[in-house]
Every structure is written in C-alpha cells, then in structure tokens.
Computed example of a mutant assay.
Amino acid sequence: MMNITRRAVLAASLMLGLLPNVALAHDDQHEIIHLMKGMFDTPENPLSVEPVVVVGDNAIAGWVQGERGGRALLWRVDGQWKIRLCSGDSLKDPKLLESANISASDAATLAAQLAAEESKLDPAVLAKFSSFEGTMMIDPEAGHQGHKHGSSTSP
C-alpha cells in the first residue's frame, strides 16, 4: 500500500510541475487564434485557425477562410504575438524556418509538432493549407487595421 501512495504522490507532483507549461502553451494558442480572428475574421467569411504550434517565441498556425487556406508564421515581440508571414507548405520546412532566424533546434521542433498536429486533420483542410502560393510578408507595425484594407481579408 505504501508503494502506491508514494507513486501517487510522485505522479501528482510531476503533473503539478507540468501544469504551468501546459497552461502557458494553451494561453499562447488562444492569443494567436484571437489575434488572427481579430485581424481577418468577418461574419460573412469566418476564419478557422487550427492547428497552432508554439515553440518558445515562435509559432505556426494553420488557417482556413472559405475555400482558401495557408499557414502563418508568428513570433512574440515584447510579449505580444505578431504575424511575420503567410505561406503554404514551405512553412513545414525547418530550413526555411531557420532562414527566418529561428534556431535549428526550434525550427526542427516546430516542424515536427506541426506535422504531428496536421496528421490529425482532414485531408481537405490540408489541401487548403497547401493551396497558398508564394509568401506574403506581414508588416508587424501595421497593426490590425493595416491588414483589413483592400478586397481580401484573408491572411
């Protein structure tokens, strides 16, 4: 009986030690979804953001809006998430992520986490992510309003 109690206490201690990290990752995901929806979501053309993977101060988020989709590369600047660029399949490549000044280890981790999360998605959603052609740089200084002008509100 003593072994079970010790194991239970050890397991509970480990879980409690991990909970802050899990909570922080969830908060980051929520902030990123909120940011992207605030910038691009409209009642007539809602934005879906999933998956969101976060490693340190970098993240990749998949998005779908109507028949379009893609992936966004984000970074945390002064505690705030900002979109750096939008692209398609190129954001699955750790070498491209490294060229965006992400460390090799973080780039590899981001790519691996993205692959794991995307493996759970419907192939039709993945096809929309892949349909984004080229790379669209986002001006982090433009703020939310800077991206709403023009005929397209998609990322």
Score class of each variant (00 low, 15 high):
M1W: 08
M2Q: 15
N3Q: 15
T5F: 12
V9C: 05
A11S: 08
A12P: 01
S13D: 06
M15A: 15
M15E: 12
M15L: 14
G17L: 15
A23M: 07
D28W: 00
Q29K: 13
Q29W: 02
I33L: 09
L35Q: 09
L35S: 05
M36C: 05
K37L: 00
K37A: 01
P43T: 11
N45S: 10
N45R: 13
P46C: 01
P46M: 00
V49I: 10
E50S: 15
P51M: 01
V53L: 03
V55Y: 02
N58D: 07
A61G: 04
L73P: 01
R76D: 07
G79C: 06
Q80N: 04
W81T: 12
K82Y: 02
I83D: 00
L85T: 03
C86F: 14
C86G: 09
S87Y: 08
G88C: 00
G88T: 02
S90K: 14
S90P: 03
S90T: 14
L91W: 02
K92S: 10
K92G: 06
D93M: 02
L97R: 08
E98F: 01
A100P: 00
N101Q: 11
I102M: 07
S103G: 12
S103W: 03
D106I: 11
L114Y: 14
A115Q: 12
A115Y: 10
A115V: 04
E118L: 03
E118A: 06
L121M: 14
L121R: 10
L121V: 03
A124Q: 09
A124T: 06
L126C: 00
A127K: 15
K128Y: 09
S131E: 11
S131T: 07
S131G: 11
T135A: 10
A142P: 00
A142F: 02
Q145W: 14
Q145F: 15
H147C: 12
H147R: 10
K148Y: 00
K148I: 06
H149G: 05
H149N: 07
H149D: 08
G150C: 02
G150Y: 02
T153C: 13
S154P: 01
P155R: 11
